[in-house]
Nucleic acid binder design. Structure first.
Lengths: 334, 334
DNA sequence: CTGAAAGCGCTTACAG
DNA sequence: CTGAAAGCGCTTACAG
């Protein structure tokens, strides 16, 4: 039904191999022959069948991207950047939403769609390094974020510790002394939550401010989690003059709840987040946050993965580049 | 290198066809034989090669989704719903970002990735019906939104006119008489912008309120467009007591600009949007808007497309279902 | 520079 | 119920 290379070969009066040579930009081909083939392709409206090409070449030119949910702005923005970076290198991205929980994450990682990809980009939330290595199989894999740390895995790191310390230092410099943290559990030391909490503690220590576990509120990393956590904090009677949401969604939820309760931001309570999603700039008041270098993360991750894909036989030289971060000071914590 | 059906057949001591029968759940197969095959699959860790299956069967079980950019919340949320709906029916979604402008949209639509899909979901922004039909080729196609209207195309409709009228009527019922519109050009009648503007006009007429073109502000459908349009409006000296952003991004941009300029929302100026993106609920003040039935749109679009894919030979019975909308009244326009 | 042939890993008539 | 064979549309050694 569809036009094939055979049809093109027949119309152009050449062999299949010659058509293939033209399509794949083989150098040594007579200009006249090449032109005849191109004309035939044009005339017939031939389009290469990527499925057949993949089966034969063993390469799909697709990379898988496993993340929790595209409706979460940070992931959506990162996915958009990743798709652009991949596209620029001739790859396409197949997104797989893992939803919540380790079970789903594992299933997503092992899904049949893997046979359609040359390698995998993965933003882990629940699985640890061992589980990831077991579930991911043997195709090239690059992790994003810093939920797991393991010297055997390629990953692009966010400077969670240093960036969180920078946010905290900024709040301290603004005179805040009772800075609540949303999105961590007192004692966390690993994962984005733990590393950011540690950065927060380090900045407090640097400034000689005491750490108070009562200011650390565990809640879901979403807007409603931030609102709910803030409500709990307000109801508890614990005093605080700033809120540091460990991601922007938390901070925006906090902002909402504080304003609903008639608290003035930033006069009474400063608010800061982490991620610099597009929305942060247009919140009212606009949100002070830290940009973890999203475009760079996307770029490096794609680059790393494609390097692994195209140099399968090269010795596995694990790389863990860090993206540069940048503090974005806005109205919510000037 | 990878385990194939042949390996499974050898280990199980059956023919290739028998393995295929087991994998494809062919009914009439001796239980003992089936078990032997399943054991072999387990033992070898066999995974079906989807590329080979696609090439042979002529079916990829993937649907393409062409939209402007995943970093735009409305599209990201819609894409997430579409992926879930498709997944539930055994299909995977390949997202293609078209960026801005008709040229890019056309290129995205015609891209090579089409050979990897069984059909296409498309959210048009710039192309008209003729251009779409020409560019899309002959695979099943379903449009989302209501940018184009054409009886020859399958599409899931948003009730732009009625929903925009409902928002406007709500603002009028709140006593507003000078309602600015962001995101349309005076005189627009087609596309989401035109249809929503017409709905706005109809509601004004119903209430006996005069239409004033000076209140219609043309700007990009993004947060910064809304902020910039609102700034222009404020600077122009035109009086207004409400702003209707034709999507939520515009309304949120307007909200930001109004608050920056010290205007009280909703006391002085009410603000309403269109889309009900997640963010609307957590803005401060929270945003009154209309939910166009995102989940239903995703569901119906996927259903329609898969129906076309799986009943290719059925006569083309064009369908254009409408999703139900719902007004969400929040603080910005109570 | 170009051709004839094999084969990637499946599914699908066709037999039995 | 099961087997032997063909073929989906490409790419890739192998010749010449």
């Amino acid at each position: 039904m569809a036009v094939t290379m055979n049809d093109v070969a027949r119309v152009a009066g050449v062999s299949l191999k010659t058509v293939s040579n033209v399509i794949n930009n083989y150098e040594f081909i007579r200009p006249a022959t090449k032109q005849r083939v191109l004309d035939a392709i044009d005339e017939l409206g031939y389009e290469a069948n990527l499925t057949a090409r993949s089966l034969r070449s063993g390469k799909t030119s697709m990379i898988g991207l496993v993340l929790a949910d595209l409706s979460i702005p940070y992931y959506a923005e990162l996915a958009s950047d990743i798709m652009k970076a991949a596209w620029a290198r001739g790859y396409r991205v197949l997104v797989e939403q893992s939803g919540n929980g380790p079970g789903h994450e594992k299933a997503a990682l092992q899904g049949q769609f893997r046979t359609l990809t040359d390698g995998l980009l993965f933003i882990p939330l629940a699985l640890d390094a061992e589980q990831i290595m077991e579930a991911a199989g043997k195709k090239p894999l690059v992790l994003l974020g810093e939920y797991v740390q393991d010297p055997r895995l390629n990953m692009v790191l966010i400077q969670n510790h240093r960036a969180a310390a920078a946010v905290t230092a900024h709040l301290l410099a603004g005179g805040r002394r009772r800075i609540a943290v949303l999105g961590a559990h007192d004692g966390d030391t690993t994962g984005s939550n733990g590393l950011r909490l540690e950065g927060y503690k380090a900045a407090l220590a640097d400034a000689g401010v005491a750490y108070d576990p009562a200011l650390v509120i565990d809640c879901d990393w979403r807007r409603d989690g931030g609102a709910e956590g803030t409500a709990r904090l307000l109801d508890s009677g614990v005093e605080f003059d700033a809120v540091f949401g460990l991601n922007d969604a938390l901070a925006l939820g906090a902002l909402h709840e504080l304003l609903v309760r008639g608290r003035k931001v930033p006069e009474e309570i400063a608010v800061a987040g982490f991620d610099d999603i597009d929305e942060a700039k247009f919140a009212s008041p606009s949100l002070t946050t830290v940009a973890p270098g999203r475009a760079e993360i996307a770029e490096r991750a794609v680059e790393l993965l494609i390097n692994r894909i195209e140099n399968k036989d090269a010795p596995l030289h694990v790389q863990q580049p860090q993206a540069a971060f940048e503090l974005r000071i806005r109205q919510s914590a000037p």
